[in-house]
């Protein structure tokens, strides 16, 4: 189910602003890759180019190549909607559909894919909620609004919603930054479990988190305000945190940044 992502020569722009410059990297399937770096260095922008969410912002565009196994995500014939059905995404702030019940939130993507049979929906909703470690907490109130859950539960609901459609890749944009430590731990446990099935890419500001959850880490940096963000290096997480190739990486992880 999981696929390899291969990015080459990728640039992203917001109108006239050059946001990220010439990024190339490979993300291995069934592993967790963490993106770290200072604010504004383009980690989230880069993440959003991987499921073509970058271009939903007016004026935003992308140049370069992103291959998902053998498919070029930016080939002219490719429908961005189809890309987003294969590459799921979890956002910084939990964003369950506020008018929908817990059940309907998880089933939303399935219904888009044409799953209509009640028994099939029931099964997938239960599996997804179990997959997101949320089933035990919500099984008795599936009809209640998703917005009534705690922040951490809402985020796991969003993860359940994303994995219900069985994506190839799961992108997470600072999924724990709005959560307390206990909820963060729950999400990190979940990430460790999900990587057996999915290719996971996670943006995080928390370097301990990157060290805890990821197999590989990419460090992004920015030369100055208004300059595009760049990939400085990507390597095994243990190497990045103990013996990075680049001076900038070492400065950042040891807190000597800037």
């Amino acid at each position: 189910m999981a696929k390899r992502i291969e990015v080459s020569g990728l640039h992203a722009y917001y109108g006239g602003t050059h946001a990220i410059e010439d990024i190339s990297m490979t993300v291995e399937p069934r592993s967790v890759t963490a993106f770290i770096g200072p604010s504004g260095c383009g980690k989230s922008t880069f993440l959003r180019t991987l499921n073509r969410m970058h271009e939903v912002i007016p004026g935003a565009r992308v140049e370069g190549k992103v291959m998902l196994d053998d498919d070029d995500l930016y080939a002219p014939s490719v429908d961005p909607v189809a890309v987003r059905r294969t590459v799921g995404m979890v956002f910084q702030r939990p964003n369950p559909f506020p008018t929908m019940s817990i059940y309907d939130n998880v089933a939303a993507g399935l219904k888009l894919n044409g799953v209509r049979r009640k028994s099939q929906l029931d099964d997938i909703v239960e599996d997804s909620l179990k997959g997101a470690n949320l089933w035990e907490e919500v099984k008795d109130r599936l009809g209640k609004p998703g917005a009534g859950l705690s922040g951490g539960q809402q985020q796991r609901l969003c993860i359940a919603r994303a994995i219900a459609v069985q994506p190839q890749v799961l992108l997470m944009d600072e999924p724990c930054s709005a959560l307390d430590p206990i909820s963060t731990l729950a999400i990190e446990d979940l990430i460790a479990k999900l990587k057996n099935q999915y290719t996971i890419v996670i943006v995080t500001h928390n370097m301990q988190q990157a060290a805890r959850v990821s197999d590989r880490t990419a460090f992004f940096n920015i030369a100055g305000t208004g300059r595009p963000g760049k990939l400085i290096e990507i390597d095994d997480t243990s190497k990045i945190f103990t013996n990075p190739e680049q001076k900038a990486t070492e400065d950042y992880i040891t807190g000597r940044f800037g």
Binding site: N51, M53, V56, V81, A82, V83, R84, R85, T86, G88, M89, F91, R93, N95, P96, F97, P98, A108, G109, L112, N113, C158, R161, A162, V165
Partner: peptide, 17 residues
């Protein structure tokens, strides 16, 4: 909210969906 719109788009919703 932008978050709701993006949640739908990221699930692979077309504009009408």
């Amino acid at each position: 909210p932008r978050a709701n719109v993006e949640a739908a788009l990221a699930l692979g919703a077309t504009r009408w969906e």
